[in-house]
């Protein structure tokens, strides 16, 4: 509850601030608070990611962007009433939607009844002919079930996510370093190599 109210306070401060540097710092704090919230909810893997990516890398990248733009936000134009109505309606609909949800941590909630027990037992797709002995570590299974689900049961998903990261990285590199060559960015001395790079 304390964490949640701190989150709301940080969000309001980010909206009200006109100084973008402070807003970036506050968004880092926002991520750190969410990470704390995830730890309280026993989702340590998600908290880990949120702390590393949200509070760490994202803040650094936004600071890098700030060095190339202005650090002051332009004064907002007059209040847009249609946007306010849309936001309030969406928020109300979302809150009404949560009223039907089972209580947090309720063991009889549908999400705990469907495939989750099989994942926890780690016997999805286990082949019947293959005997599991006790002497190998964890019967060949992985004690952290988040890792087991992400890397094994949902291997296709993770492969796709990795492809997304790869594509994003290549895209950013092409966009930003494909600009007119600068003094610091001298091409490779080997002409054949740079020609091959152009062809590719």
């Amino acid at each position: 509850m304390i964490l949640l109210s701190l989150l709301v306070a940080t969000a309001v401060a980010i909206i009200l601030l006109r100084d973008l540097f402070a807003a970036v710092m506050l968004s880092g704090i926002f991520s750190l608070l969410s990470a704390g919230l995830f730890v309280v909810m026993d989702a340590v893997d998600v908290a880990f990611t949120e702390a590393a990516v949200g509070a760490g890398i994202a803040t650094v990248l936004m600071l890098g962007t700030l060095t190339q733009t202005s650090t002051r936000e332009r004064p907002a134009p007059r209040l847009d009433w249609s946007a306010l109505v849309v936001v309030v309606l969406t928020g109300t609909a979302l809150v009404i939607g949560t009223l039907d949800m089972p209580a947090y941590g309720d063991p009889t909630a549908p999400i705990h009844q469907h495939v989750a027990p099989a994942y926890i037992a780690q016997n999805v797709g286990k082949q019947s002919g293959r005997s599991e002995t006790d002497d190998d570590d964890f019967q060949g299974h992985v004690p952290n079930m988040v890792t087991a689900i992400l890397a094994s049961y949902r291997g296709y998903d993770t492969l796709g996510e990795l492809a997304v990261i790869f594509t994003a990285g290549v895209g950013v590199m092409l966009l930003l370093s494909g600009l007119p060559p600068t003094a610091g960015d001298t091409p490779e001395t080997n002409p054949a190599e740079s020609e091959a790079g152009v062809d590719a």
Binding site: G64, T65, F166, A168
Partner: peptide
């Protein structure tokens, strides 16, 4: 891949900022 992508993105950002 994640480490290399993040470092590369950061490098091109810094390189542009200079």
């Amino acid at each position: 891949t994640v480490a290399a992508v993040v470092v590369s993105i950061f490098f091109v950002f810094v390189d542009r900022g200079r």
